[in-house]
Structures are given as C-alpha cells and as structure tokens.
Nucleic acid binder design. Structure first.
Length: 824
RNA sequence: GCGAGAGUGGCGAAAUUGGCAGACGCACCAGACUUAGGAUCUGGCACCCUAGGGUAUAGGGGUUCAAGUCCCCUCUCUCGCACCA
C-alpha cells in the first residue's frame, strides 16, 4: 500500500475480503452474548439516498462496536419490496413490477456493499419473494380462524390516485401518506385486522419500553387514545328506542339539555319528524359531501339541524331535543353525544347558536355561575349543584358516584373507549401479497385450504394504467372453484397492505430459510428481541405500532414468546441541506454514489456520524465532508510517517515513563475510555470522533519533539487511534491495522480496553473564583487537601487584588474542581 | 388549543452529576513551505474595550457560594394530536 490515502483501493480490497470470508455471517452461539441490531429495511425505490447512508452508518457503527466487544451480532438486511411505485413504474415502462423491483434490489444491494456495511447477506430477504409472502398467508389464515382478520362493509379512506384503501394511520392531514392526494370516504367491503383487541396491551406495554424515546411512546399512547367513562342510555320520547352515548363526564349528566348525533348515525333519518325531514336530509347530504379535511378543522363553524324528536334525560326526566351536529364523529364512542353546554365548550357554542337551554351543574369553588352571563363553558373542577342527591360533592367524586348510580339503576355502565380503529389491510392493487381467500356465492368467504397454499401472484397481469386492480383482470387467477362446495367461485383480488410484511420481517430474519413455517421458534428465541432498532421518526405510529401488534399476535398464535419486538429504539434525524430536507424538487440532493466515488465510503460514513448526534437532524455540508476526508488523510500520513520507527517497538514500559511520553499515554487511555463510553452509553458518535481527533492532534504535537526511546508509546497511541476508528471507518482502519503488522483483523483484535491507572492525572487544575467569577487557576496535586487548596487560592497573586478591603465571608471548595471565595 | 422537544460564536456543534461556556470540525484571517494545491504545517478566531477588565447560552425574574444546566413568566421555532364527547 502506498503512502497516499486512496480510498478506492482500500475499500475494494476489504469489501472483497469480507465477501470472500463471509465475515459477518452469524449462527447461534450459546457461549457468547447475542446482540440483534436492526435498521429499518429500505423500500427498493431505485437507489439509496443520504438518509439511508446515515441510517445504515449509524447501525454499522453499533454492529461493529458490539462485535469488537465480543458479542455475537445479528445484523441482517432485506427489502420492503411490495408497493405502489413498482406498479406505477411498470405502467410507465411497459414492464412488470417484479422486474423493476428485483433490478432495483440488485442495484441498491451493490450500493450498500460499497458502503462497507457489515451485514449477514446470507439472511437477505425481499418481502415479494414467494418464500416470504407465502408464510404471511399462513399467518393470515390463522388470524382469520381466530377472528383477528375479518371482512366487513365499512367506511374507508380511499386514495383516488393510488386507487386503493388506506388505513387511518396512513392518512396524514386528510391526504395520502404516499402520494399526498386528498383522501375520500367510501363504503367498501374490506379486510381488517383486529388491532383494537390488543389496544389495552399495546397501551400498557408502552410503559415497559424504557429504551424507546418518550415522544414515540406518547404518540402511540395518543393514537390508541384510551378514555374512561360511561355509556348511558337516553330513551327516545314516544318510542321504544334508546340512544346510547359515551361520555367521560357522567358528573355533568344533570346538565345535559339536548342531544347531538353524527350525521351518519343510523338513527338519524328515522328520528326525523315529518316537518323536519327535508332539513335533516339536506343536512346529512351536506355533511357527507363536505370533505374530511375541512370537517376536521377545529375552527369549522358548528352547525346542526333539529330532528324534531326528543329524548329523556334519565336523571332529570327533562325532554332533550335531538340534533344532528357536524362536529360529532360517528367513528368515536357511539356517534352520539349528550350535550352539556355549561361544561363543554363545543356544546356551549352550539347551544348559543341554536338558542338551547343552559343549566349549571358545577360551580367553581366559592362562586356561583349564572347561565345568562356565561361567555364560555366551565370545564375545570368544582362543586356539584342542581344535581339532586349529588349536590355539594366535588365533581371529581361525583363522576364515580353517578356512574355507580347509573349502573345500579340499569341506565348505563362504566366503559373504556379507545380511539384506535381496526387496521384496514385490503389494498386494491396488484403488487402485494394476495389475501388467501375465495369468495363463493353459496358459501361466502372461504379460506384457501392449507394444501392449496401459497396463492401465487400471477406474473401475466397487464399494467395498462387504465384504472382498477390489474389482479382482478387476470381471469386464470380470479376464476376458481370453491374449496367447500366445489362450485364456481372467485378468488379474492385484494392484496395486503405492505405494512403487513414489515410487521414481522425482523422475526423472519432469525430463520430466513426455514421451511417448516413462518418462524423457527428456537431461532426466534435465540435472537429476539431486537436489542437495538434504528429508523426514522415517520414510523412512530405506523410501522412501529403494527410491528408491536403483530409480534403479540404471533406470540398468541404460538410462534414465539416475545411480547415486545424492539427493546431499544433510536429514531435518527433527517438529512438536511440548505435548510430543507433533501429532495429532488428542492434540488439539494447529494448523491451517495458521487460522494463515494470522490471521497470513498469511509469519508461519507465519517462525516454523517461526526456532523451531528444520530437523533438530531444532520445539516449536510460539502466543506464538512472535505474536513472528514482531510482528517483521514492526516491519520494515514501519520501512520506511515511513524511506521519505520515504531515497527519493532515493544510493549510500553510504564515504570520508565515520564514527562511528555507519560502525558501522551494518559491521553491515549483517557480517549479509549471516553470513546467507549460515548459509543456504548449514548451513541454520541460525534463526540467520540472528536475525542479521537484530539488524540491525533496530541500524537502529532508529541512527534514534533519525538524522543526515540518513546516509540513504544507512539505505537500504542497510533494503534489505539486505528482501533477506535474501526467501527466508523472500517476499511480505512483494517488497512492501517494490517500495515501496522497485524495478521488478525480488527474484529478479531477486539475493542481496546484502557488502563485505569494510566488515566490518573499527575496534576490537576483547580479554578479559583471570587464571588463566582473566574480569577485564577491553580495547578496542584490531585489529592490536595481542602485546607491546602483554600490557602493556595487565598494566597494567589491574581486573586489578592479582589480581596483587598473586603472581608472573606466563606470559602467553598469543590474537590478537584474549584475554590470559590465569597467576599463582601 | 393540547402534548412533546428545541433556542449556545459567521456555520455544524460540545459542556455526561449545578462547578473554567464554546471541546472537535467547517469557514475565515495571518504566516511558513512550495514542483502554486480543492496540498501540508504553524498561529489566531464569541463580543466590547488600550493594559486590566467588562459582557455573553432567545428575553425577563427567581433559587444558589456558583445556573446553558434547577424553578416561574414571556417570545420564537420544530414535531405530534387536533371538535375524541
């Protein structure tokens, strides 16, 4: 190897060695502690972007660090390969989604390999492989048997551009998460997973995940949206029917003066009186037509219509007019709300607009509210009034008391309501996992029998772009016979949401080639849970909630014994350039290929790790990349410069060390300690790299006054630099390590330990403050006695002027740090 | 509106337990060398001021011998939820 740093040569060499030796292939090994490190697998969109480079660089540092520490590290990679873009590309290029996808995978795999990432490529999988999705069909059918997968007619989110259904989690601000089109509402017969059955456990377990960022947990808790309250029945006047409401405020029941129903409420039309019928129909029509986006906005004017019907307040027996209101949501609670205008702001505004009665049932402590003069609802805590036997109670106590009373009287019952809805997984698209059922006119929905699995996605679909699901037009796929009655039947043409595949891929990585089922239980037990998961914050509710749900389902189906899939989660920040997220439209994209071509993968990795801590956004700077490259070149030169002198250096003779050499050795061991802690405890790679840079500076400074008898110290210093850099810039470090005369690789050499004794300072700096202001610094022995330190501080000549004419009130001593003299 | 997080030099950032604010790097300035380079090395680099100081971590107040760090108020930004009964 030459003395000039040539990343291309170095990187090609080591990538070949790693590939030839299968260096990162792992098998279960009971003798070592396991570490399962996973980055969210990419969608094969065509080529990798800087976000990938950052994500996978972060992961690779941890993988290599843990490996050097002696862990048996599982570090797999694969492809989230089903999805819309492949289908769109097929239409555009008159090709096939499979071709596009597998070509992209091949190209992107090559790109990842040029980054020198330490994956066990033997475990690679793509979710569009038959060998993957066939097992998912088996899981689906088992979920179907348990009622966890079901089909029903329901209102769904429909993306007109993607021509498919979206789950609630996939609608952002009323728009499609992928293409940003405005989402419409449609009534469709579609498949769902009963994630709501796991709502409570999914919520509870967020409190068992200390290794997750709090904000992700909070987002999941909000999404699950548990609220405790009551269901209460209100009899409709002059009829047998009842309206059921959900409320978290049973304490306000005596103040309920009218009723609000969602426009889509099933009773809406039948309640309408003859005279109101026209108005009610017009209102329902208007609400249905108003788009979801606007309807959700809080500043939307509250509107409603009187149905002409009344119900009875079960506690006061007062007649309550029944309204339809645009702010009541059918999906939440029972789609009906008891309106308490005095204690709910929405009801207050509604009552004012339609001139409905107000009745105060809670007063603020020591005050009396007058409905005639109220300008807003009173929603905080207070004392019960106008509520019969509950008068005088704190309203917080009355919640419980009234709820108990309602239960006793059979009027209502305590319930828990969740905001979480079941996960709609039907997608009216071709490039996905076919839902393995058959629709028979006689037998209804019939699951595909185990012997007929898998349902293979047919390759002869046509991608015309003319709308509709291409799969539904493949006659040979659609037409089949009913497994139950044998009659002619039609195969289901909906495919599964691609988030289904990403909900269990981390489990499949434990036994990616297993043919006995989706998962090899022993292997899963050996590797799971994922010790460290790394990915973008954008999946805080989507993928990360689905994956938790799926893990629990697979546990309950007997496939594994894991409750939570990801022990620790790191959400890395975005890559920003010129103040905006990198995107084609902004023209601020940095192409990883060009970067690697010019500087090498190690520089690209180093910069993306050095510029910011992983969880923060990273501000890309071309000049910063130059700086990282310069640093590596400097280390390279340093090694070759000292190589002839240190080649035959022996071990450091610690007893004989003194002066600068001893200081250098102290710096070496302090750096090892700091880098180990920064990487291990905090993932603060930026400060770890900064510490190595400082050490390099120290070695260079030392070298300028190099004394030949200190070659052993220099060798130790240089070798430590190389070893500490190994997780960050692996090709670079391996090359220098071998140049330094080592036959074993850095992985085999392991992570350096430090000599605690060598880190002990001979002298320390004690800061002297007067009234908290820095006035002097003392250089003293580390074990200086308190009195000696104080005396030295008081006697210091820089301190003296500040003491003149004043009296010393107090002297504070913080051992080894400072003396603060308080004067007045 | 509610919830979470953030605000530190020209820039990216450090400061781990309340104890020297600005490590490390970028940019910039000066110098050295020169086969003139997007090279390397040396030094400087928060602000104000002549030394000695003084002032600075969004703004204001507080606790403390001591506050970027803890408490209260205000402002700004980012993210999430958003009429959830």
């Amino acid at each position: 190897m030459e003395e000039r740093y040539n990343p291309k040569v170095v990187e090609d060499k080591w990538q070949k060695i790693w590939a030839d030796n299968n260096s990162y292939q792992v098998t279960e090994d009971a003798s070592r502690k396991k570490y399962y490190l996973l980055e969210m697998f990419p969608y094969p969109s065509g080529k990798i972007h800087m976000g990938h480079v950052r994500n996978y660089s972060i992961g690779d540092v941890i993988a290599r660090f843990k490996r050097m520490q002696g862990y048996n590290v599982l570090h797999p990679m694969g492809w989230d390969a089903f999805g819309m873009p492949a289908e769109n590309a097929a239409i555009q290029h008159k090709s096939h989604p499979a071709k596009w996808t597998y070509e992209n995978i091949a190209y992107m795999r090559g790109q990842l390999k040029t980054l020198g990432l330490s994956y066990d490529w033997d475990r690679e999988l793509a979710t569009c492989d038959l060998d993957y999705y066939k097992w998912e069909q088996k899981i689906f059918l088992e979920m179907y048997e348990k009622g966890l997968a079901y089909k029903k007619m329901s209102p769904v989110n429909w993306c007109p551009k993607c021509e498919t259904v979206l789950a609630n989690e996939q609608v952002e601000d009323g728009c499609c998460w992928r293409c940003d089109s405005t989402v419409e509402q449609k009534e469709l017969n579609q498949w769902s997973f009963a994630i709501t059955r796991y709502a409570q456990e999914l919520l509870d377990d967020t409190y068992q995940l200390p290794g997750w960022p709090e904000r992700v947990l909070v987002m999941q808790r909000n999404w699950i949206g548990r609220s405790v309250g009551c269901e209460i029945d209100f009899p409709v006047e002059g009829g047998m029917s009842k309206i059921k409401v959900f409320t978290t405020r049973p304490d306000t029941l005596f103040g309920a003066t009218f009723m609000s129903l969602a426009a889509e409420h099933p009773m809406a039309l039948q309640l309408a009186s003859a005279s109101q019928r026209e108005a009610v129909e017009a209102f329902i029509d208007k609400v249905k037509r108003s788009d979801r986006l606007k309807r959700g906005a809080e500043d939307q004017e509250k509107e409603g219509v009187f149905t002409g019907a009344y119900c009875i307040n079960p506690l006061t027996n007062v007649k309550m007019p029944i309204f339809l209101a645009n702010f009541v949501l059918l999906e939440y609670g029972t789609g009906a709300v008891m309106a308490v205008p005095t204690h709910d702001q929405r009801d207050f505004e509604f009552a004012k607009k339609y001139d409905l009665p107000l009745k105060v049932v809670i007063n603020p402590e020591g005050e009396t509210l007058d409905p005639a003069t109220m300008t807003e609802a009173f929603t905080t805590e207070g004392v019960m009034v106008n509520s019969g036997r509950f008068d005088g109670m704190a309203n917080t106590d009355a919640k419980e008391a009234i709820a108990d009373f309602l239960e006793k009287e059979g009027i209502g019952k305590k319930t828990v309501n969740f905001r979480l809805r079941d996960w709609g997984i039907s997608r009216q698209r071709y490039w996905g996992n076919p839902i393995p059922v058959i629709n028979c006119d006689i037998c209804g929905v019939v699951p595909v029998p185990a012997k007929d699995l898998p349902v293979v996605l047919p390759m002869d679909a046509a991608f015309t772009g003319e709308g509709g699901n291409p799969l539904a037009k493949v006659e040979s796929f659609v037409n089949c016979s009913c497994p139950q009655c044998g009659g002619a039947a039609r195969r289901e043409t909906d495919t599964m949401d691609t988030f289904v595949q990403s909900s269990w891929y981390f489990l499949r990585y434990c036994s990616p080639k297993f043919q006995g089922g989706p998962l090899d239980r022993d292997k899963v037990e050996a590797w799971m849970p994922v010790d460290q998961y790394i990915g973008g914050i954008e999946h805080a509710v989507l993928h990360l909630l689905y994956a938790r749900f799926f893990t629990k389902v697979l546990r309950d189906l007997g496939y594994c014994n894991v409750d939570e899939p990801f022990k620790n989660l790191l959400t890395q920040g975005m890559v920003i350039k010129d103040g905006a997220k990198m995107s084609k439209s902004k023209g601020n994209v940095v192409d990883p290929n060009a970067l690697i071509e010019r500087y090498g993968a190690d520089t690209a990795r180093l910069f993306s790790l050095f510029a910011a801590p992983p969880e923060k956004d990273l501000d890309w700077s071309d000049q910063g990349v130059d700086g990282s490259y310069r640093f590596l070149s400097r280390v390279w030169r340093l090694v070759f410069e000292v190589l002839p002198a240190i080649k035959n250096a022996g071990a450091v003779d610690t007893a004989a060390l003194s002066g600068e050499a001893k200081n250098l050795r102290r710096a070496v061991h302090k750096t090892i300690k700091k880098v180990s802690e920064d990487v291990e405890d905090r993932f603060h790679f930026n400060t770890a790299i900064a510490a190595v840079m400082e050490l390099v500076n120290a070695i260079q400074a030392f070298n300028q006054k190099a004394a030949p008898e200190n070659v052993a110290v220099v060798r130790e210093a240089v070798e430590s630099v190389v070893r500490l850099l190994a997780p960050f810039v692996p090709h670079f470090a391996e090359e220098l390590w071998s140049e330094l005369g080592h036959a074993e690789t850095l992985d085999q050499a392991g992570w350096p330990g430090y000599d605690a004794e060598a880190t002990v300072d001979e002298e320390i700096t004690v800061v002297v403050q007067v009234n908290g202001k820095l006035r002097s610094k003392l250089t003293v022995a580390p074990d200086i006695a308190e009195e000696a330190a104080k005396a030295a501080a008081l006697a210091d000549e820089k301190v003296q002027p500040f003491l003149e004419g004043k009296s010393v009130k107090k002297v504070v001593y913080v051992p080894g740090r400072l003396v603060n003299i308080v004067v007045a």
